[in-house]
Design a protein around this nucleic acid. Structure first.
Lengths: 343, 343
DNA sequence: TAAATACATGCAATCGTTTGCGCAATCCAG
DNA sequence: CTGGATTGCGCAAACGATTGCATGTATTTA
């Protein structure tokens, strides 16, 4: 049923009564083989659908040509932002002749280490990674660099490593979004952020803070919460709305959290956006499904993925110097929809 | 900075004054090497963090051990269902020591063929694939099977090939969902389906038709439309609602379409679910974001992925006979939420 | 006609591992 | 003290491809 035994150059050589070297040269269209023989060999190969054994090829070339497989580590797969990044990486990689090897860390340090090992074994030419939330040791990354496998971080950066990275402009994205809330008349803007152990959390918070300052507002600690998912948002938001001086706007670290806020606020009978404005961050599927549709900061995951792949391929192909840490920032864009008031 | 030159057995052998064969045996803990030497070699390897060259290993074993990379072809990446399937595949694969190599066909036949080539070159041990919408020739798949690379289809099946496959129970899923609409009092259930060239479209339609028959209703062609995305749903639904005998329920082929219907119906001032019931198919992110939340058929993509990976690995490892076409059906589950009436 | 040039092909080493077989050295028994 | 077993290791041939160099033949030139 299946040939199991792949056709090799040796087989072709035997069949056509020439040497393996001749077959090799003929198939690479070398002019040192006579036209007729070359064509005969090529035809035979085509007809018997010969396929070069990439393993052997790679072994032979393992100094000059690295493999063309890019390792990608994502914390989660069923997630709009990470899917988008993956999409961007895949697009860039395939356009430039690379394959991608994907693994999910499940936000676990252990798993991340295992994956690095496995990818090293599988001879990926480089790795694009967003760290797991609980990763606090970096030996496995250093290990990779020592083995000559370039690394590019995205989203969750490893601050201890001076590695290449692509991040979205969290600071400006948030600053613009919060400014928009204020400029459309909101006076008390609440902030739901991620734990401050993450770079992105800090940057977004700074953007929030600076937007307030720029508009002459003061930071009210009681309006700042650590909350980055829907369940928590639904749990803590009712209390926020019962405060003496309740917020008249919410900025949430992601769309999911914003949706949680929206559903609570609507349930409590407030009008969105007239009484309460809401702004998210992501611009994923959810943003256009809720009612009213969500004003949110577009995170451009696909662009992040493309840039990351571009850097990695540059590093692999030597366009970028090996020891150089390329850092790129992807601009965000505020998408205004129905959960904020018109200007 | 980076060693570029990987440490090989030859290096260890030279350094320790033994032969390469001895190193190889020592590292595989062969009892034919004396305990002291074995340990000395193992220690040296560990200290200089030796890493076997998987390429060479594979080349040596290419008859017995295939690679442990599974190719996965998805039509799209930023898509709830396909992400879920990918997630399931990744989980099963990594649990069993396999890596996954992902490529996106973008629903293009051309691209699908290219990907198959590339994956064959990269010596994947098998491929899990959902066909592109416009694939109508199957040479590339036959080609793979001829090369001894097992194939497992999911979601979009290739009917011309008697290959292994995993599908969700579209027929029963739809039948149950439509029955639920009828049993909660709906009399005129509209059906928005995918083009009938797709297996799943046919199965879902049959489920719809049979649900009507079972409840003594007749099929009204004017209630059946080809429509599988939000934009189209928003375009055609207003006319549906202006019909003399307007539908009092909609069954949509996916959540996205259902959301489109919902937004139009609400905008036209109808109450959901009192005047109009809506049911989708997927149970993705969207289903819990809209208001009211969507009643929908859970498609269990992750389970589909797991089953597919399980079959493929079985085929690769010989647990399943090579020529056998394993067919599995994943049961769906109706998730009742706010867009349908209580019983 | 001999020598120089071109052209076409084969030999053999190489990439890093694995593994069947054979060769020494050691051991124990007779 | 000799013969057969046992032990520990190395030799060399694979795996499938590439490539520098040598070889052989045909063609041109002096």
């Amino acid at each position: 049923m299946n040939d199991k035994q792949q056709l090799t150059m040796k087989d072709i050589a035997r069949e056509l009564g020439v040497s393996v070297a001749t077959v090799s040269r003929a198939l690479s269209d070398s002019p040192s083989i006579s036209r007729e023989r070359r064509q005969a060999i090529q035809q035979y190969a085509r007809e018997h659908n010969y396929f070069p054994n990439i393993i052997a090829e790679q072994l032979r070339h393992n100094k000059r040509n690295p493999s063309r497989a890019i390792g990608v580590i994502v914390p989660e797969l069923v997630h709009y932002y990470f899917s988008s990044v993956l999409d961007g990486i895949e697009a860039e990689a395939s356009a430039r002749g690379y394959q991608i090897m994907v693994a999910k860390s499940n936000e676990s340090y252990e798993r991340e280490v295992q994956i690095c090992e496995a990818m090293l074994k599988n001879k990926v030419c480089g790795i694009i990674v967003s760290q797991a939330k609980d990763t606090e040791r970096y030996d496995h990354f250093l290990h990779l660099e020592a083995a000559g496998v370039p690394l590019v971080f995205y989203d969750r950066i490893c601050p201890a490593l001076n590695a290449s990275r692509v991040v979205v402009d969290d600071y400006m994205g948030t600053l613009n979004a919060v400014s928009h809330l204020i400029e459309t008349g909101c006076k008390r803007v609440a902030f739901y952020g991620a734990p401050m152990s993450m770079e992105i959390a800090v940057n977004r918070f700074n953007g929030y803070r600076d937007a307030l300052y720029r508009h002459g507002l003061t930071l009210d600690e009681s309006l700042v919460r650590i909350c980055d998912n829907r369940a928590d948002a639904e749990r803590i938001t009712p209390a926020m709305m019962r405060m003496e001086q309740r917020p008249d706007a919410f900025f949430a670290v992601n769309d999911e959290t914003a949706i949680g806020i929206l559903s609570v606020v609507k349930r409590l009978g407030f009008n969105v956006p007239d009484e309460v404005s809401i702004c998210g961050f992501t611009n994923g599927f959810r943003a256009t499904v809720c009612d009213p549709m969500l004003t949110t900061v577009e995170q451009r995951g696909s662009q992040v993925g493309k840039e990351a792949a571009d850097i990695l391929i540059g590093l692999v192909e030597g366009t970028l110097p090996a020891n150089h840490a390329e850092k790129r920032i992807v601009k965000t864009r505020l998408v205004v929809r129905g959960t904020t008031r018109p200007l």
